[in-house]
């Protein structure tokens, strides 16, 4: 037999649905006869209701998208930090070696190399030694082909005989390889996803695009992972230029549901009007693929033709909507 005090402790578990059925039953019959427990229960319920009414930040698709974009950027920084020094060497070694072997058939030239650098140099300022001379001594690894950009001085005061600066070194690596080589696709995919420099990501997309053309001409399927990487870049890359290039590259693929979902995502979520214009254009081109029973598509189009703040998007959405509905 349980005491009143023991029942009282269970009231909280009870309102959270954490009691076994028989325990719950016993408690209920006690509460029916015990005024103190009834009052306690009512009190707990009021608290629960009051707390439940508290406004909370809700996780919208766009909040999630922002979080994903920021994570990508953070991982880029992390990767480029760890890819200095030894790791860079290993990375290049691992991916360079097989390419040298593969040079048959339809060769593609790709430029994907990138090094991020943040180095400290001792500069003998009293001799007036030029910085660039120091730089070329230290960067043999780049074989003198590197294009140095974004030089930033962190300590430009030469009076203490020491200066510090950081830079980006973009080093084009010319690669001759078979476009069907998964190694190349893998490097391009990586470059697209995690290179910090948006210019390199853009070049990766255009290299991928040229590969897709070659492969589709040969009626070979394109690696699905490349497609997913492009879809994700179209949705999540923080650089609108890269998102747009990825969207263009996807036009080369046979239209399918994943691409459709990606385009609808851009159409509903992208804050850049230009991207939404491109997305509705892609959907317009593919309109023969849609069925009038596609409620999800029609919903998005209906919303867009009424609420998008870009007039072209509204008109085009209406046109696609009308056509699809008649199919």
């Amino acid at each position: 037999m349980q005491t009143h005090e023991q029942y009282k402790e269970r009231l909280l578990l009870s309102i959270h649905g954490e009691l076994e059925a028989d325990e719950q039953k016993k408690l209920e019959s006690h509460v029916a006869d015990c005024r103190e427990c009834r009052e306690e229960l009512a009190h707990l319920k009021r608290l629960q209701v009051a707390v439940a009414a508290l406004p909370r930040v809700s996780v919208t698709d766009s909040l999630l998208q922002e979080a994903r974009r920021e994570l990508r950027a953070a991982i880029r920084i992390e990767r480029n930090r760890t890819s200095l020094g030894v790791t860079v060497g290993r990375f290049l070694e691992r991916f360079m070696a097989p390419w040298v072997r593969l040079s048959a058939g339809a060769a593609a030239f790709l430029a994907v190399g990138f090094l991020g650098g943040a180095l400290m140099f001792r500069s003998d300022v009293s001799n007036g030694g030029p910085i660039l001379k120091q730089l070329s001594d230290q960067t043999e690894v780049l074989r003198g082909e590197a294009e140095i950009t974004n030089v930033r001085f962190e300590d430009a005061d030469p009076s203490d005989g020491e200066i510090a600066f950081s830079f980006h070194a973009v080093s084009p690596v010319k690669v001759r390889g078979n476009p069907n080589d998964p190694g190349i696709q893998s490097v391009l995919t990586k470059a697209l996803m995690y290179e910090e420099n948006p210019g390199v990501r853009l070049r990766a997309v255009s290299a991928i695009t040229s590969q897709i053309q070659i492969q589709l001409r040969k009626e070979k399927g394109v690696d699905n992972e490349v497609k997913i990487a492009l879809i994700n870049a179209m949705k999540y890359d923080e650089n609108p230029g890269v998102r747009k290039e990825a969207l263009h590259a996807l036009r080369k693929f046979p239209f399918d549901d994943e691409i459709k979902q990606g385009l609808l995502y851009v159409l509903t979520r992208d804050r850049n009007q230009g991207l939404r214009v491109e997305a509705i254009n892609s959907l317009a081109t593919a309109k023969d693929e849609f069925r009038s029973s596609d409620e999800q598509l029609l919903d998005v189009l209906r919303r867009k033709m009424e609420t998008d703040n870009n007039q072209y998007v509204r008109l085009q959405a209406r046109a696609v909507f009308e056509e699809v509905r008649q199919q």
Binding site: P55, R56, V57, S58, T60, D61, S62, L63
Partner: peptide, 11 residues
Amino acid sequence: ASEGEEESHGA
């Protein structure tokens, strides 16, 4: 709650 997106008002 209103710092986020417009949509969060619905919540």
